[in-house]
Structures are given as C-alpha cells and as structure tokens.
Design a binder for these strands. Structure first.
Length: 585
RNA sequence: GGAGCUGUAGUUAAGAUUGGUUAUAACGCCGGCCUGUCAAGCCGGAGGCCGCGGGUUCGAGUCCCGUCAGCUCCGCCA
C-alpha cells in the first residue's frame, strides 16, 4: 500500500492504487502524491520512465483514482522528504491506468490546515470521511471494538444480539416508533437499550453477556448525544457491584492501553454520589483539578446578607468556590461568571477578593469579622485568592457552581486533555423527585436494585432517601457508562413499579412478560453499559460526537447527506394504516 | 419549548462600529511556462442571489423585523 513502502523495497516493481492527493507539474516531470488509507507515496511521471503515462499524467487532478505500475527508487540524499514516512523512496511510473475522475471538490481532502464548516462536511460526508483525520478516527473505532470484543470473549462473555424491533416501554426517553404493516395501528419501538433482553438472557442461563449495540432515544441532541448511538452492553449473573466494577475496569485499562497506549491505574478510585455532589456539585466530577465546592451554610446562617440567610432559611444552601490567585480576575470576567450561572437558574453570584486587610467585595459590609474569618478558614482562602458564592436551593447551587467550576478550570487553563482521571461514582439515590410531574422517577432505571434496608425503612415515607446499588464510571467529568445490580425478585420489582406510580394494570400490560420471567428462577445479576461513542471521543481527543460517528445527525436530528428524515409516499402510509395530521393540535 | 454564536466566490476568512463608485484576500479551479518538487514556482483567467423574505433609506453585505439552516448550551436525555 501507499504508506507501507520503505527503502528496503528499492528496485522492486510495485502496483499501487489510490487517489491523487496532490499534483506538482514541472513540465518535464510530474510528481503526484498517491494516497490510500495507509498514507502517501510520491510517484514520478517522466518521459524516461514511460512516455505514454507521462503524457496522460498531465490530465490527472485531485482525487482522481488511478492504478500505477512502477519501480521503487531510492531518493538521493538532497531529495529525501523527512516529513513523509515514505519520504526516502519514490516510484518511477511505467504504467498508468486512470480508474476514475473527480469533479471539483466542495472541500479539500488534503488540506488539514483548513477547518471546514460542519454543514459542508456533513453534506459531503463521503469526502469528509476520506480525510485522513476522519479515517484515523473510524479506524481507531474499529480497533477499539475489536479490543472490547476480544476482552469479553476471553473473559467468558457471550456476544448475543437482541432485537431492534421491540415494544415501547413507559419511563425513560421517548421511543422511536416503527409501524407494523402486518398489525395495522400497532407499533414497534426501537430499543433505548437492550436492558430487559440482557436481563432475560441472564435468566436464561447465559451467565455473562456483552454486545456492542445501537440504541435509540428520541431526545434532543447535544455535542455528545445522538439519537442513535452505540453502547458496550454488559450483564453478568451471580455477581455483585465489586465484581462488575473489577471486570469492567480491566476492560477499560486494556482498551486505553491497546488503542492510545495510556496506562490506567487500577483499581479506579471510587466516591459516593453524596461526596461527588458535596465536593463538586455534579454526579460526574472532573478530578483533573481541585477547586472544590465548600458548603458555608452553617457559617452564614443568620448573617446580615439577606440573600444568603434567606436561602438557608428556606432550606437552601450557600456554597463557595475558592479560586487560588483569583483576585486578579477583572470585573468583566466576574460578570461573565455571573451570566454563566444564570444558565442554571441561579439568580446571581456573589464574590469576594481576599486582600491583606480583608475582603474586597460588594457584600463585605453584611458580614461580621468573625463570619469573614470563618469563611476564609473553611474555604482555605488566602490574600490574593477569590471566593465565589452561590445561594439558592441545593439543586440550583450545585448545578450552577458545579458547572461554573468546570468553566473556571477551562478559563484558567487547568484542563489538560492528556490526563485521564477516572472515578467510579457509587451509591446513587434510587429515585429523583420530578418537580414538574410531581412524582418519583428512577435515577438509573426501574430495574435497579435498591438497598433493601433503605427500601424497608423509607419505602412508605420518603423514597428519595433510598439508595441503590448503582455505579457510574466517570472520566474527566464525563459519564462514560453506568450500571447497577438488578432486581431479580418479582416482589421487589413490583414494589418499585408501585413507587414509580405505575398501576397494577400498567405493570401487567407493559412489563408483564418481564415480571413473569423473574418468577422462573431469575439469578442475581447486574451489569453496566458504556457509551462507546463517548469513549471514542476521548480516544480520538475530540469534543464532538459527530467526529467519531461515520454518518451522524445534525442538532435538528436530520442527515444532511441523505436528507433523512423525508416524506414518504401516500401508498406507504396507507399500507401501514397511517395518516398524517395537518396541524399539530 | 428557551438562550447564545454563526451564515459573504468551490473552501476558509476580511468587509458590519461610521450605509455610498466595480465586495477583498488566501487556498482551490481553468489556461500557459517550467526536469526534482513535496503547502512546488512564475504569468494570466474565470468564479458572488453577501442564507432567504420583508422593511427603513436617494442608496443596504452593512441598520430594523421576520424566517431558515449549522453549532454550543438550558429544558429533555429511566
């Protein structure tokens, strides 16, 4: 292949096929860099090598597809190109076959300097994917998938596939629906994950399962979220949290080693959800930098500043971020931070610059010397430092300061993308209270095993206090994957459904098949699912999920290449028993 | 559903504060010259619905309103 030839091949006759990356026409001699997925190789056309191909090489243009026969030649010392791995040799072309031509290009394949607009890239994805950078991304993805497969196969996991046409389930994300022609008026749903199927495989006795599988969720897109995405899905029987974690982190270690040669130290540290929220304000903390949040609620309780004391009086909290040497930040930068926290429903952000003689702060006058001392002590602030305050409900304070912490780290240059800080976050609450719908919903999913003592103690009175046996693997502030030990007893599963406000009839209708499966000797089991695309974002060092997915959707969930989704013929609808309603009422 | 950023030759950008002759550059493309380049070089050339629609104005790429698209984020994502 083009990128493989070295000095050792000198004198050999070779056949190369590929794309014209670049043509340099000197009149009497024409140089072409020929490209395939392995790289570039310079081929030389000249009268002395072959008059016929030299003449026709005049017509070659970028991205023409050609096949050549030629002799590998050693380059003289002053002609070696140290920038190319094949730079010590070139091919004297003796025969040229033009396999295809190419129209003028909407984006340049060979120019890696020029960042092309993403709209253009997605519209001409075929060409975008021909760019070496994208080829590297997708080839690494292929390699990663192989490493994962080999790891699990070697660890006695079975790769078993599960259906894409399955039934819609309540809870969770919106389903993508697929109408059934054979059963007019009825619909399949594409799986949000193979959750129930893998659990049923455990019940069927397959002991250990994995799958690299597409999942579908009809929710709004983000820089790291696509409507169809790929999970590394894992389930194990007769297991517990420690064992799942232990197996999975070995996989992660192997994956990072064999793809990007990064050593992941095992065991990966663990922290509870409560610790993560306390110290970082988020359930997926970035541990590459410190900037921990400190709760100063008890200090400011009853202080003269009504915004703070009012927040704690109403059951809220006041937390701080101490920015070392942060007092050099300008008023404008602090205003930007204030605007930033407003995204997260925070009403504002107070700040205090620490001087030798006390606080320089709009709110300093509201605090006694003792309170100031206590806050300085709690936050560890010294002269030259800066303290930022958030006061509101704990959700808003954690949300805004947790995200502000990341923002500050970015701004101060504390974020090093060559560092990989993994952490397991454990002991998640089983439920979250949904304020808008006034009910509880599962933090993980409804099949997560609760801590049984919690369930007995709080089940009737305060379900939000129930913890679950669930765990997330977080890397640099991003959730890579999450899992749990599952409920394997019918009674507990039914109890959880009830707490989720599902009626007996709904339970029977939606999950009857699963509940019944549990009754036929379900073993204890648990597992985890990774976002494969997100892992690939780290391995490829990209911040866009679209750079690791060959044919992604735009934020409006459309494909600019195929123009999907599209209208369909009336006949198709008719056959499915469907009609499109004009208005959206 | 909401907020912000962006949209100008094939591509990437400048021009937008302060409205004013023919909208500028680089790369790419086309033609010519050239036997050692490798981001080749030199000479010449073509290429524009300034996202779209409306408004203000004697005059709009530039100001105003609307709209569409791409991106980032909030909500949403068990």
């Amino acid at each position: 292949m083009c990128g493989d030839l070295r000095k050792e091949a000198t004198g050999k006759e070779v056949i190369l096929m590929g794309w014209v990356n670049n043509r340099r026409d000197h009149g009497g001699v024409i140089f072409i860099d020929l490209r395939d997925y392995t790289g570039l190789c310079q081929i030389v056309f000249g009268n002395q090598h072959d008059a016929n191909s030299f003449e026709r090489a005049d017509t070659l243009r970028s991205e023409n597809v050609i096949a050549i026969k030629g002799i590998v030649a050693d380059r003289a010392d002053n002609m070696i190109n140290p920038k190319m791995v094949t730079g010590e040799i070139e091919i004297f072309v003796t025969e040229l076959k033009i396999l295809n031509t190419c129209k003028n290009l909407p984006l340049q394949i060979s120019d890696e300097q020029q960042e092309v607009n993403e709209k253009t890239r997605l519209k001409y994805r075929t060409l975008d994917l021909r760019r070496p950078a994208m080829q590297e991304n997708l080839m690494l993805r292929s390699k990663a998938a192989q490493v994962v497969r080999n790891f699990f196969y070697d660890s006695q996991f079975f790769e078993i596939d599960t259906p894409f046409l399955t039934r819609s389930t309540p809870e969770g994300a919106r389903d993508f629906l697929v109408p059934s022609r054979v059963n007019p008026g009825k619909f399949f749903a594409l799986p949000q994950s193979p959750q129930l199927f893998k659990q049923m495989l455990m019940i069927s006795g397959y002991d250990r399962y994995f799958q690299i599988v597409k999942c579908f969720r009809d929710e709004d897109l983000r820089g790291n979220r696509q409507p169809e995405f790929t999970q590394i899905d894992i389930e194990m029987s007769f297991t517990d949290q420690a064992q799942v974690i232990s197996v999975v982190e070995k996989m992660v270690q192997k994956l990072f080693k064999e793809t990007i040669n990064v050593d992941v130290q095992l065991p990966i540290i663990q922290m509870t959800y409560a610790e993560a929220m306390d110290d970082y304000g988020v359930d997926a903390p970035d541990l590459r930098y410190d900037l921990k949040l400190k709760d100063v609620s008890s200090i400011i309780k009853g202080c003269g500043f009504k915004v703070f004391s009012g927040a704690t009086d109403k059951g809220g909290i006041v937390k701080t971020i101490m920015v070392p040497n942060g007092s050099s930040l300008s008023r404008k930068e602090l205003d930007d931070f204030t605007d930033f926290v407003k995204i997260f429903k925070s009403k504002g952000m107070a700040w205090a610059k620490i001087n030798e003689d006390g606080w320089q702060s709009p709110i300093a006058k509201f605090f006694t010397e003792e309170e100031i001392q206590a806050i300085n002590e709690k936050t560890g602030a010294k002269p030259g430092d800066l303290i930022l305050f958030g006061a509101d409900t704990s959700k808003i304070v954690n949300d805004s300061l947790g995200n502000l912490r990341k923002e500050i780290a970015k701004k101060l240059g504390l974020v090093n993308d060559d560092v990989f800080k993994f952490v397991w976050v454990t002991d998640f609450p089983l439920f979250e209270y949904d304020e808008t719908e006034k009910r509880y919903s599962s933090s993980h999913h409804p099949f997560t095993m609760p801590v049984i003592e919690d369930l007995e103690k709080w089940g009737e009175t305060d379900p939000s206090k129930i913890k679950s046996i669930a765990y997330d693997l977080v890397l640099n502030g991003v959730e890579l994957g999450g899992g749990s030990i599952r409920i394997h007893q019918k009674e507990i599963q039914e109890k959880i459904f009830k707490l989720l406000n599902l009626s007996d009839q709904e339970i029977k209708e939606k999950f009857g098949f699963f509940i019944e499966s549990l009754e036929f000797g379900a073993p204890p089991h648990g597992g985890l699912a990774f976002g494969f695309d997100r892992i690939m974002m780290f391995l490829n060092k990209t911040s866009s999920i679209r750079d690791v997915i060959p044919f992604p959707k735009t934020q409006q969930a459309s494909c600019l290449l195929t123009e999907a989704p599209s209208d369909v013929a009336l006949d198709q609808l008719k056959e499915l028993g469907l009609a499109i309603r004009k208005s959206n009422q």
